[in-house]
Amino acid sequence: MADLILHHYPNSPFSEKIRLIMGYKQLAWKSVVIPALMPKPDVVALTGGYRKTPFLQVGADIYCDSALIADVLEHLQPAPSLYPEPGKGLARIIAQWADSTLFWAAMAHNLGPKGAAHMFAGGPPEAARAFGEDRKAMSAGMVRLRPADAAAAYKSYLRRLSDMLDEQPFLLGQVPCIADFSAYHSLWFTRVRTPVVADILAHTPAVIDWIDRMSAIGQGTMEKFDAASAIALAAAAQPMEPGHGLLRDSTFQDEHGIPLGSRVTVTAESFGPEPTEGELIAATRTHYTLSRTDDRAGKVHVHFPRIGYVLKAVAPA
């Protein structure tokens, strides 16, 4: 099995979700720290356009989006499971809510004027402006909550999480599941990265105790790595054939009338509008896989979850 290489940066909430899953599954992984803002030439060499954080590299296979990465890690290391029975469907639904609705409310609160001032304190004014412009470009067309509205929603969501913890240590029982990891990362950002606005957590002490339990899981065994080495490793490897890698489902599910072998793009539905273009070699009930070739990375397979992503055929030239 090739090394697990996580391309991430320290302040990324979704990266914290995956780092903690690595710890839960006691995995060893290599860390490539990538820029938080564009341009990201080393990222694009591997993904073909996708620039959200994190992504996971296994040889010449690139897995995009934390939801898909969690599935990959589950296939690789089934125990302890992120999707324990009998509630795995409920866990996935809560995780999807946490990665979207909860996340955007939390981050609008976290990066309001007070939190943003803390994040960029001591840095040049242009750093804050560059961050704002970068995230504005990534969220073009999205409806964003204002900080006051976000705080009200966030408080309600925290109370609901607290209710789930009344008689159990984790959201759905005695052990953590994907719902816990997905709910945790936004709250981690509040508490660790923007502590000046973390008083919002004080009203739900059960949630604070749960955050402590989650944090104690740790992040597995990490080894520093660099982008140039990761790209060279991809170039020297061969991507895994569909159905024989870490995404075992291979049955073609056609919802678009786009046959395998077509030139296509895959783009996030909302946040992060940059498309990845390639040859469609898998479209299953759970994921899309594109084959593409890069001057530096060679032939790579780039994988996306089906939910949350848009598949389109490329019009002939």
Rank of each mutant, 00 (worst) to 15 (best):
F304M: 01
P316H: 06
A206C: 07
T251S: 09
P80M: 13
D163E: 15
K224C: 09
D3P: 02
C177M: 07
I93E: 13
V72T: 02
N11S: 12
E223F: 10
I200K: 08
T47M: 11
G23Q: 06
T101F: 13
L187G: 01
G278H: 00
T293P: 07
D71C: 09
S162W: 07
M222L: 09
I62V: 13
T47V: 12
K52F: 04
H287Q: 10
T47Q: 04
T53I: 10
G298K: 11
Y288W: 09
A150S: 15
L76C: 05
E167P: 03
G123V: 09
D61R: 02
D254E: 12
A282Y: 05
T53R: 00
G308R: 06
A317P: 09
G123E: 11
Q168N: 08
T251I: 09
R193I: 11
S139T: 13
S270H: 11
R213E: 04
Y50C: 01
D65R: 03
K224W: 08
P124N: 12
A227R: 10
I69K: 01
V32M: 03
A79H: 14
Y157N: 02
H109G: 02
K40R: 13
G220A: 13
Y184A: 14
Q168M: 10
Q219G: 05
L158P: 01
G261V: 12
M222R: 11
L20W: 08
L165D: 05
P169W: 07
P169M: 08
A206Y: 06
I5L: 02
P54L: 07
S15R: 05
P205L: 11
A153G: 08
I69V: 15
F189V: 05
L20Y: 03
T276I: 02
R263T: 07
T284A: 08
C64R: 00
I281Y: 05
V197L: 04
E269A: 11
L111M: 14
D254H: 07
L56K: 06
K40T: 01
A315E: 14
D71E: 15
Q253H: 14
V197I: 06
G243W: 12
I93Q: 14
A148F: 08
G48S: 01
F170W: 03
Q238R: 13
A232Y: 04
P239C: 06
D71K: 11
E241M: 12
M107L: 14
S15Q: 05
I18F: 09
L90A: 14
I258M: 05
V175L: 12
T293Q: 15
M1T: 05
A216S: 15
Q26L: 07
Y24T: 01
R146V: 06
L158R: 03
A152H: 10
I94F: 13
V196R: 07
L73E: 00
D149E: 15
A70Q: 02
H244A: 11
V72P: 00
V266N: 00
V266I: 15
Y154T: 14
F14M: 03
I94P: 01
R146N: 11
R263L: 11
A2G: 02
T293C: 12
R191Y: 09
T101D: 14
E255I: 07
E133L: 14
F131H: 13
T267Q: 06
V264W: 01
I200C: 10
A67H: 09
E269K: 10
Q96Y: 09
Q77M: 14
